[in-house]
């Protein structure tokens, strides 16, 4: 999957986790927490959804990599390069 596709996947997941959020105006450089009402339970769901949908394993001490869209995509790019969309 290319970075752009990974971004789409994350948007899709966020849309399922937090259906009431406006994701159109998301700033990729700014932490999710500062733009969306996401708590630690929701962050766990990003991780769990990636595991459920694409079998991507993310160890607990690396959850911090998922702070913003930009950091998430760059963290996932090598992990998901072989994954088909």
């Amino acid at each position: 999957m290319a970075p752009e596709e990974i971004r789409e996947v994350i948007i899709e997941i966020l849309g399922d986790i937090a259906p009431d959020e406006d994701l159109g105006s998301l700033d990729d450089a700014v932490a999710f927490r500062e733009q969306l009402e996401l708590d630690s339970m929701d962050f766990l769901d990003i991780v769990m959804e990636l595991r459920k949908r694409y079998r991507v394993q993310i160890p607990e001490d690396e959850y911090v990599q998922l702070a913003s869209m930009r950091s998430t995509v760059s963290y996932l790019t090598p992990k998901m390069s072989e994954v088909a969309k």
Binding site: D16, I17, A18, D20, E21, E37, D39, M41, D45
Partner: peptide, 18 residues
């Protein structure tokens, strides 16, 4: 409806309810 904070909205999200 539409509230993003608080236990009710949190549990609806977590359990994938509308």
């Amino acid at each position: 409806k539409g509230a993003k904070k608080g236990p009710l909205s949190r549990l609806l999200r977590q359990l994938r309810f509308q």
